[in-house]
Design a protein around this nucleic acid. Sequence first.
DNA 1: GATGAATGAGATTTCATTCAT
DNA 2: CATGAATGAAATCTCATTCAT
Lengths: 230, 230, 230, 230
Amino acid sequence: MARRSSDPARVREKILKLAMEEFARTGFDGARVDRIAERSKVSKNMLYYYFKSKEGLFVAALERMYEEVRDQQRELSVRAHDPILAMRQLVEHTFQALESNPNAIRLMNEENKQRGRFLRKSKRIRDLYNPLVETISFILERGRVEGVFRPALDSAVVYMTLSSLCYHYLSNRYTLEIALGKDLASAASRKTWVEHVGNIVLLYCTAEVPSTTAPKTAVMRQRATSDADA
Amino acid sequence: MARRSSDPARVREKILKLAMEEFARTGFDGARVDRIAERSKVSKNMLYYYFKSKEGLFVAALERMYEEVRDQQRELSVRAHDPILAMRQLVEHTFQALESNPNAIRLMNEENKQRGRFLRKSKRIRDLYNPLVETISFILERGRVEGVFRPALDSAVVYMTLSSLCYHYLSNRYTLEIALGKDLASAASRKTWVEHVGNIVLLYCTAEVPSTTAPKTAVMRQRATSDADA
Amino acid sequence: MARRSSDPARVREKILKLAMEEFARTGFDGARVDRIAERSKVSKNMLYYYFKSKEGLFVAALERMYEEVRDQQRELSVRAHDPILAMRQLVEHTFQALESNPNAIRLMNEENKQRGRFLRKSKRIRDLYNPLVETISFILERGRVEGVFRPALDSAVVYMTLSSLCYHYLSNRYTLEIALGKDLASAASRKTWVEHVGNIVLLYCTAEVPSTTAPKTAVMRQRATSDADA
Amino acid sequence: MARRSSDPARVREKILKLAMEEFARTGFDGARVDRIAERSKVSKNMLYYYFKSKEGLFVAALERMYEEVRDQQRELSVRAHDPILAMRQLVEHTFQALESNPNAIRLMNEENKQRGRFLRKSKRIRDLYNPLVETISFILERGRVEGVFRPALDSAVVYMTLSSLCYHYLSNRYTLEIALGKDLASAASRKTWVEHVGNIVLLYCTAEVPSTTAPKTAVMRQRATSDADA
DNA sequence: GATGAATGAGATTTCATTCAT
DNA sequence: CATGAATGAAATCTCATTCAT
């Protein structure tokens, strides 16, 4: 009776989806295989049939999550003509991708907690990172050619800067809120911060960097939109 | 009989120390009360006698960790006369504090995973964040007075910028290494990055921020030390 | 489609072979249907199709094993003219048959553990024992006729004596080794023991048996080859 | 409510007793921890608290069994003055010890099935074997001095002979019964066999062993009691 | 304050077996 | 004949917590 779910691929998918949620919500140790099984309406054994162990399921969920993120980035991937605009859009997209994938953040944290133990088991994941870095390279190069960006910028550094600022805001929201007494979840805060990140990154890409000893005297013509009163 | 295990305060301390490690290493769910008891050479019941529950122990460990971090920051807290120098030192100290307290990072991540559920239970923690933000305010004000920093800078924004960049490098080390194929643990990488963070923060504090539409034409005099080839 | 896995009889054979090994190695409870299926490269359902259940498979494997042993004994079955020589050869062959069929020993032990529960289900097995006992009868009779063996010897007793001594050495090898601190697996030990068994059996067949009360004064002319220094 | 069983040593004992039975009856793989727990009226966890794992429990049960056997042998241990009588008594005791401890046989078989894997983990077991071998040495020596036994007899060989014949009769009872169509459980069969074993062992100890080539011509004065009509 | 013994609930994993195709 | 997918029941083991002393 009602034995047939017919499509094993679909079953696998459903399991993975639920597993992602569970692992993201509670971490590897907190996650319960029972719960995943129950929610995906699959008998517990099937999880083992498909994924061999809790760990196997976790790795599979991780891979799946990375794919989702990549797909989302690919969709959003804008290559606006103006490098400055493009960079701002990239920041916006990066932030948005992380924002709409809270699972991604939690799973990555989990990975790092385990010192990359799972990551190393999955060759596929490595490849998924590249697109973003490549997009940055692309934008930097165009900016350089057009004379708006400094030469010799390292795309990895820009990537790390940009993603640190986006990721941390979302990842450490609760401690930051308590530390600063602010509400980071509000639309206003979010908007302000994304602009700020854009400003910071562009400042870095356009300006020469300051030395330790000599004070800056640069004069800049445009005010940022709303940065100062964040 | 004649057990006389020194004074209770010391026992509490020992338990907390081991608990911090365990919770940091494995997260709340991964942590084992048994293990903490065994390692601290205290009978399991004592843990319950002192801390009432696993959760109580976690909160206590959290508080303890925050105190440690604060104490460390207080020690390091430099208030160099030159605001630019002071800011660079602040970055260095912040990075170093996090670096030498991997437990702190992991515990904070844990907190955020639990959506601040534990944090809210502890009034004491709130206070521990302030010093850093205050130090930033202090430096910003002096810089403004001396004319090297922009006016109307928000210390919270500077704090978030600075700590995002430091924290993320350490917290997400493993995924970053895989994503970028770099070794972030090396002394060279670390040095370069800390300099980079200083540069970024100072750029932000000194320069006006760029607009989206108009290209930058600023001319800046000094090259950064080693930033471009990170 | 177009699988055509040769003939069913061969498949059955392959399954049985692997099943024998698995059951012998791990016992009935320790044996895993999955493992047998995997190793014999047959889908698990085939096992059930052919043998109906794990128990059915076990009984079939048991029968198969007995057949193998019988075939082997039939091959070796020597009927040397000299009864004494014949008896020694019989011992050697019995030992060798058990030695080269460790599975047989383990399966028989398994059966005895289960109190012959499986054995009784298989009529065929009963017949397989006879040849050995018959061979013994044959040798005993010839020995009696030739005047070298005592009259009225019970072939069953000789069979039990002989097989106990051979079987136990192999079956309980590990406990014996530990109990005695000897290496029973060595070629030397083995040779000595087989000779010893031959001696014992021949002693019994040729000599009158000693009484409890009166000491023996028999004088025997020949020394055994290497028995005393085993 | 009824929490107190007070005496942990007694609890341990009870568990071990039940474990021995379970392991003996069903073998290691067939044994169920649940069943042992239930029967010994101890919560399942206690088994793990005391013995760490199923394997640990098995080893402990094994040791316990060996102790029992040794204690029993020690009790029975006769050192009759007449070596021949002593040897017969030893056979009787050995048989009886095994007979009244069917668990011992099954556990030893289990060990051998596992290739002594558990045995090697327990230093204590090694020692438990010695007494029997020593008793044999003692008897052999006295017999030699008194001139009734051959010199240079190896006590290990006598031990192996004697125990093979006793053990196998009991251990392989079911297959033997089917093979020979006899009822080995009857008191008569048992008595006959024990006498036979005594006869065999004494024959070996008193007589010179026969060579392969030359026929025996020994004349012996006493008839065995009931051996021929077994 | 301190401890060894005990426990209930539940975690992950295994396994013989069957169904639909 | 043959198979991949599925399952229910149960197995071993874990863990936070408490009781009696």
